[in-house]
Write a protein that binds this DNA or RNA. Sequence first.
DNA 1: CTGTATCCGTGTTGATACTG
DNA 2: CAGTATCAACACGGATACAG
Lengths: 226, 226
Amino acid sequence: MSPNSKKRAYQDGCAVAHALDIIGDRWAMPIMRELMLGPKRFTDLRAGLPGISANMLSQRLEELEAASIVVRGRLPPPAASQIYELTDWGRESEIVFQVLGRWACRSPTMEPGKPMSPVSVILSMRTMIDRDRIGDLDAAIGLRFGEEEFRVTLKGGDCLIDRGQAAGADAILSGDQNALVAVLYGGARYEDVHGALTIEGDRALAERFARLFPLPPKAPSMVSAG
Amino acid sequence: MSPNSKKRAYQDGCAVAHALDIIGDRWAMPIMRELMLGPKRFTDLRAGLPGISANMLSQRLEELEAASIVVRGRLPPPAASQIYELTDWGRESEIVFQVLGRWACRSPTMEPGKPMSPVSVILSMRTMIDRDRIGDLDAAIGLRFGEEEFRVTLKGGDCLIDRGQAAGADAILSGDQNALVAVLYGGARYEDVHGALTIEGDRALAERFARLFPLPPKAPSMVSAG
DNA sequence: CTGTATCCGTGTTGATACTG
DNA sequence: CAGTATCAACACGGATACAG
């Protein structure tokens, strides 16, 4: 395992310092992010975390397990492969990701256009949804990103977004999640990303849906006159 | 400066990944924490960050400045020494610290008793204050930790905690901030830490004050049978 | 296929010493 | 007081080999 696991730790009673001791290492939070919407296998995790090495992932999963953030499970037979899953407390960290994401998306140095994993996109929608804009919308939107399917349920002024069947929704968007990001946050129209994203069903609903996720204004840059 | 600053970055459009790119490096968030209540000099920062090396602090301050989180300033003459201070946007990250702290203080592996800086203690109080318990309390509590003074203002069911004169408050607690932590969060009574913390003024107020900061329940440990 | 263990080049961190 | 320089130790990332 970890023969001489001398973890470098802040010797600090501050709860934030403890948080950094357990989830502050490189890749720890992105791994948690990928698990936020449900269990994944080792290889699925790697797919959502471009650039991570098998070593890193293996080691971080051990550490997250030791911290009671992740538990190992096994899929029911016959596909009895190992899966990793957040604990209840691990799942409760979603609010941390939301608040951190809301703060960071105002960063003057954040440059758009970099690829996002399907889970990132879904979590960003959960974060940025403006419930005031839902109004009396009562509809379901299905999202298909490769093998992964999600469902957005708008009802009673609230919005639920989770894994679920896209089929049967009033509108279904299929294709590359990055194309959807361009539409939701990048000011693009569906026509602009045509070919990367296809729309089935209620087109007007898809248009209204695309405007439910406003971005907050950027913070001013303080670097060499701003 | 930074001759070959090849920063290792997540190539990820996720806002959380960007957050980690700019404040995910070791010591970045503790430095921000120390600046959260106002500007500090280099040496003051080191005092609140036991274990940090001078070059780390220097390098992180550069990076935080480049990210528009920190700006360099200068105290008015004659004490024209350099100070570091959060930008408006940097100060808006306090909510991140609060949410992260609230989540992390439930960690099964968090062990109490480690020392905290005066700023940490004040921020923890801002985080954990239970406004429902304030009731109709209308009073001021002064806190003195070494050279640093703070004031807690309870009024109209709300609570303001900031740097400010301790003198003139209805009750004044002076001494070691870690002793106050033991009383607020560790279940200790003032008598238990006598000598480390002295109380002037309204003793009953000090007692009521000490119960305004309840801790949430711990999350269960998932390690080897829980 | 699903991971784990080991080696190795490189960058980051931390301790000490030193300078304006 | 406010940092910079130097150097040793370690963490990271990639490749490869290995085990169930």
